[in-house]
């Protein structure tokens, strides 16, 4: 693999300048934000690079799981900030969902499929969890957004169903099913075009690092299936948790618990 020097990275920053020139030319006034975003990219990635180097060399279980926990908390925070509506306790729901699905999926792949030894090897655990979280949080936030919008917008229709003897589950089933569908769509779309329109990061990274493309593809297939499973389970779980928070034991929709994010 060709090792990049600091000079190479500085050279690449010229590409961001091109984006800045487009903004200037079209009067988008995005130059400042673009500059700050580029700075964020450099600082965050350099920081994580050094942290990962430290964790990889230490190979200490507490450090590895501490890092994974930080990643899950950040993903949960991001997942609940994207939907236009929210409710009390939503962060806890997202955290629980991502912890459960993220850790179970990562452990399944590293332990059962790849057979990593020792089982907590950070070189596998952390990137795999990162990929799961990155994809799951998109699905999760889309799912939440749709669910909360449906509960809020269709509250009268849901109340009509409850008034005619529907259980809370019967009244909520259709919007919940649609929300899970929305949550799964990005993953399905990605799976449909992967390898044709896009070469995913994991595969590209492995190929750049000198791995056999077929080996890289095998890893990518495993990862795609892992992401599909976590997106489906995660969307379903967040919907069930949201449903339990927004319908009470008297089979009433408590739409007043949902509010628009300002």
């Amino acid at each position: 693999m060709v090792i990049l020097s600091v000079f190479d990275v500085v050279l690449a920053s010229g590409l961001v300048v091109v984006a800045g020139l487009v903004s200037l030319g079209l009067g988008l006034r995005l130059e400042g934000r673009l500059g700050r975003a580029a700075l964020h990219t450099v600082v965050q990635l350099l920081l994580i690079g050094h942290v990962l180097r430290w964790i990889f060399s230490a190979e200490h279980v507490v450090l590895i799981f501490g890092m994974m926990l930080v990643m899950v908390v950040a993903a949960a925070r991001s997942a609940v900030q994207r939907p236009s509506r929210t409710f009390r306790g939503v962060f806890g729901h997202a955290l629980f969902t991502l912890l459960l699905t993220g850790f179970v999926a990562t452990m399944t792949v590293t332990h059962l499929i790849i057979g990593v030894e020792p089982w907590y090897q950070p070189r596998y655990l952390i990137p795999l969890l990162g990929m799961i979280l990155g994809n799951s949080l998109t699905g999760l936030s889309l799912c939440l957004d749709h669910l909360l919008e449906a509960f809020d917008r269709d509250r009268a229709r849901i109340e009509m169903e409850l008034a005619h003897g529907a259980s809370r589950w019967e009244a909520a089933k259709a919007p919940m099913r649609e929300a899970v569908r929305k949550g799964l769509m990005p993953t399905i779309n990605t799976m449909t075009v992967v390898g044709i329109v896009s070469l995913p990061g994991l595969m590209t990274g492995q190929i750049l690092a000198g791995a056999d493309p077929v080996v890289a593809v095998m890893y990518q297939i495993v990862v795609m299936f892992m992401i599909a499973a976590t997106s489906a389970l995660g969307s379903m779980l967040i919907c069930v948790l949201g449903f339990r928070a927004l319908f009470d034991r008297c089979h009433r929709l408590r739409a007043e618990r949902v509010w628009l994010r300002v």
């Binding site: 409850l162 008034a163 005619h164 003897g165 529907a166 259980s167 008297c250 089979h251």
Partner: peptide, 10 residues
């Protein structure tokens, strides 16, 4: 509750 509402229908 669902059965009650089936009987006391709004």
């Amino acid at each position: 509750w669902p059965r009650f509402r089936r009987h006391v229908l709004y």
